[in-house]
Structures are given as C-alpha cells and as structure tokens.
Design a protein around this nucleic acid. Structure first.
Lengths: 304, 304
DNA sequence: AGTCTTGTTTTGTCCAGGACAAAAAGGGGG
DNA sequence: CCCCCTTTTTGTCCTGGACAAAACAAGACT
C-alpha cells in the first residue's frame, strides 16, 4: 500500500502489473534473476518503478507475445531492443496505416475516424470493412505502438471507437435468425473483445444467429450456455498471447463437455498456427474464413 | 502452475482470483487469519478451492462492495450470510424485474431481450430507456445474482447484450457535434464499462460531443487526452466498489493536472455519496442528472 | 446535533527467498 | 524432416513476517 505515488512519475508494483500485464511475482523474480527491472525503493522498502522502465517492460511484453523469450530480452539494452523491434517489423507486411487514420487516432478525432469507417463501409460493405480495414489496422496499430508512434490512450481510443462503430453497424442489420445458432465467447484467461466482435460481425452479415457472451467465460458456464441457448456452434477466440498448452487443454475439456452434434470453432491469431489437427474442432484460419465456414455448415446440414 | 484442475469442480488460486476479484494475497491471508476459505491441497501442496467456497467468496465480495467489512462476513456461516443478503434486499426498491426479462436472460434469448429494449426505446426514447429501464435493471440483476436466481453466464449475457443494444442505438443517432466536448473514461482501478456507456448515451442524446476512451485510463494519459482532444469536460465514472480515498486522491491530482477551464464531472454509485464538496468538481447524482448538467453548462457558456 | 481531532483495530498489500512443474530448447536417432 | 528424450529456462506458488492505509470508536469543541 504505502506511498501511493499518485500517477505521475513513479509506479508501485501493483500499478506496473496493471500497466504491463506482468504479475507481481514475475516482476520480482525477474529482478532477482536478471537484475532488471531494478526499481528504487520508498521509505518502507517498497518498489517504485520509473516510467522509463515501465515503457521498456511494455516493449518486452509485446515482443514476448510474438514469441521472444524473456531471457534474451531482459539481457538486452534499450538500443538492442529497438533493433529487434525494427527487424521484427521489416519482416512483415508493409504497414497500411494511412496518415489520415494515424492522425485521427493521435488527435482523438472521433468524427474523422468514423468518416473513414463509414466510407469503407459504403465501398466494401460490412464484411469488407472488417476484413480489409479493421483486421489489418489492428496489426498496424500494434506495430505503431511498439515503434512509439502512438501511446496507450491512443490505442484505447482506437479500440473503443472501433468497437463502438462495429456494434453500431451491427445493430442496424436486420437479424434474419437463420441457422446456425452460434455462441461466441473466449476462455477465462483471454481478454480480447475486439476479435470476438469482428467474428460476430462476419457471422451476422452471413445471416447467422449470434449470441455473444462477451469475453472471459468459465468452461462450465460455456457448457451450460450452449445447452440453454441450444447452440449449433460454439466459437472461441484466442489472441496470440494465449498459452498454447492451456488452449489445447481447455478445448479438449470443452469438446467433451459439449454435445457431439455441437460444432466447436476456434479462431484468432493464437489459434491459427498451433491448434490444427485437434479432433472435433474447426480452426478458422483468418477473419475471411468465417463466411465460407458458415456456408459449409449450411451445406452439410441442408439435407434434412 | 501444476495440476491445472481444468475447469470443472476445483479451482486454483489464480482461477479464484479471476472469478472473485480477490487478490491471491488476500485469499491467503484470510485463510491464515479467519480460517476461511480452507481449500484442499493437490500433490504439490497448492490450493484447490471448491465451487461452493468460490460461490461463498463471491457473495462476500459483493456484500463488501455494499459496505460490509470482511471480519463479520468471514466469521458468518452460509446461513447467516443468507440472512444478511435478504435483509439487504428488503431495504431496497421492490424488484421491477418483470418475469419476461428475467426469463429472456435465463434462456439467453437475444431476440426477446432486444424486443423489450426496442419497445421501451419507442415508448420512452433513448434517455428513457437508460433511466427507466437499464439503470434500475442493473440493480435488480445484481440482486437476482446474489439471490442465486441467475448465474454468472446470465449476467455476462445481460451485460453484453445491453452494451450491444445501447451502442447500436447510439450509432444511429445523428452526431450534432454541438459543444460541450466531453472526454469519458474511468480511473485505472475501475473496470465498469456499462455505466460509462450509459453516460455516453445520455450525453449524445443531449447533443453533446462525446469521446469515450473506454475504462482504465492512467491519470497522466487522461491529462494528455484532454489536451489533444481539447475537451470542455472530463467525465469519470465510479462503481460503488471503488475505494473512497483513492477516488479523492485521483480526482484531486487530476483536477490540478487539467486546465482550470476544463470541468471535471464525476458520477456513478461510488461518487454519489462520498465525493461531494470537492473543489472544482461537479458530482452527477444519478443518470437522470446528466441532461440538466449539460444544459447548465450551456447556459453558463452561452454569453460569448 | 454536527464536525473535527485522536487513538485503536481491522485489513490489504508487500517482501524475501525457496521450491517446483510447465514450456521451450537442444540433441540425437530413425 | 519428424519424433522422443534430456536439459535449461521461466512462471507461479508457497510460508510467515511486516507495516501502512482504511475503518471504526471515543472524546472535545464549536
């Protein structure tokens, strides 16, 4: 508790946990083992982290989400980290992020951002908006953040406005109520709500009946919900940061708990690579595969 | 780590932290001091909590949010807890929760729930929907949950669908872009997103320009955002569970960090009672006060 | 009666350093 | 190249002590 360094230049260990998503225990054991981060102490001997260290921790965290191991990163200097980040980016698709959008995000310009979305919506339709703009934009935003081009509040702003726009557009869609009935959620350890919403958009545009429970749903409750909502499909989303083992364990348990007639679909960056060939599970490889998957389901169930 | 009791009848300490919002440290110290909860241990000596205990912990948590102290609650038996809960409810408004809505929530019936919202929207308008239906409903849902009438997934379902409907309706509203420009968010320790959305609805319906950053925004970032978005008002929401001292400290720091011309509004169950007479802060006493407050602001700024 | 002290109890969070299991990496065969 | 085994890395949990912040209680003063 103690000296509650109120928000400005030094953060307590709780605050750092909140900011970076790294558990207190992890922060302490890193300090013990690698000597970084090495926060100063207040009068009571409690850790106080500098903004600089917190920033570095955030970079490290994000590189870890991309598969880097902490040992290397914690030994590296700030300059070396920078090199890694640049190399990481060079090896990817060139950023699409137009100056217009970036500016809108940086200045928190609600109208400008919505204008771009609206424009894309008109040109490419709802599904196109998601596949051609939002999905790649998510990647770019992450990179811009790592590069330091945009800050935390800007990222929040983007997420919030995008969710808002998608939900809004979704609401104005006529709900046809055709099968399949899809139950949407994520496992308890998974926070990401935007990915889930993108899937909901794709499904609804395809005319399917969606029931989203939001993120972080306990396994037992997913089972119950699938029954009470008499779902045809249960769809889960995994971000790239999700621990593989846990994903597999969760999926197997869930697969057994569900009726055999209920399909289990998994998608998201964390599912794409590592969850293939699990029995009784359909992997959605990208946001663009949702449509085909629904049509395939309908073909298979058209007979009766 | 260890035996990862996958989801069904026994939970690790991490899982309990997730489910109840009580920190691991707190769970351990309660066990040490009060002898509850007393989880069994796995082969490695790690705690495994029963679903029953977790349920009891959830009740305790919620009663604490209403002002009860842990010492009393942890000493009490399950039966005594039940008495407290019933007494707590008797002292409140009789539940408005029509059977129709409760049934819709329990059976995860998207269409039925939306129908009720749509109906209310037509009858009372957007603001009426929020003040007369959603706001009291939130209270009722909380109580029904505590009573055991609905479960976790049902509450998730309700939150998700309500947010979805409100956001959707919001999106179809013409954005007039009249002043004031309002920046909406919560402090980092505050999760609640639905309250924030309700305020956004009221403001937008009033014709104000909203920029929501979503929940959990660091103080320093709120300051920056208020500048870059050149906001007239910064509005914060506090749930009843928010620690008073921290709220006051946060508000004072923020008040100093903001330009004097920028107004600071606070609302939510946690703000109503305890934050009055802070200098330079306007307390919004209930969701219905948002409209008058905006009009008062406009009157005061109409002169030039 | 209210509000401001002051002292007392309750309660949450932090610390250190040890332990150990899961995940990843490395190292041969087939 | 893929599969199985061993070694290293890494995150999370444990105990029990400490202490500051919050809540409460009691008295003193407008």
């Amino acid at each position: 508790m103690s000296a509650h360094a109120s928000g400005l230049s030094l953060l307590t260990i709780s605050a750092v946990e909140r900011e970076t998503g790294l558990l207190k225990d992890t922060l302490r054991v890193w300090e013990r083992r690698y000597g970084f981060p090495k926060p100063i102490r207040d009068e009571a001997g409690e850790r106080l982290y500098s903004l600089e260290d917190v920033g570095k921790l955030r970079l490290i965290r994000r590189l870890m989400d991309q598969g880097w191991r902490p040992g290397k990163l914690l030994a590296a200097s700030a300059a070396e980290l920078q090199l890694i980040i640049e190399a990481e980016q060079a090896s990817r698709v060139p950023a699409l992020l137009a100056g217009e959008i970036l500016d809108a995000i940086r200045s928190h310009d609600v109208e400008a951002l919505r204008r771009v979305f609206q424009q894309t919506l008109l040109e490419k339709g709802l599904q196109g908006l998601v596949t051609d703009l939002v999905a790649p934009l998510n990647v770019d935003i992450g990179e811009a953040w790592m590069r330091g081009d945009i800050g935390v509040p800007d990222e929040h702003f983007y997420t919030e406005q995008t969710q808002s726009f998608l939900r809004g557009t979704l609401a104005s869609y006529a709900r046809t109520g055709k099968p399949p009935r899809v139950l949407l959620t994520t496992l308890p350890e998974e926070e990401h709500a935007l990915g889930l919403l993108m899937v909901e958009v794709m499904l609804t545009a395809e005319g399917a009946q969606c029931c989203s429970l939001g993120p972080r749903m306990p396994l037992a409750d997913i089972r119950t919900s699938a029954l009470t909502a008499s779902a045809d499909i249960v769809a889960l989303s995994f971000s790239s940061a999700f621990p593989v083992r846990q994903a597999i364990a969760g999926i197997r348990t869930l697969r057994e708990a569900l009726l055999p007639t209920v399909e289990l679909w998994v998608g998201g960056a964390g599912a794409r690579d590592k969850l293939r060939n699990e029995a009784g599970v359909r992997v959605i490889r990208g946001i663009g595969d949702v449509g085909p998957a629904v049509r395939a389901w309908r073909d298979a169930h058209a007979s009766h």
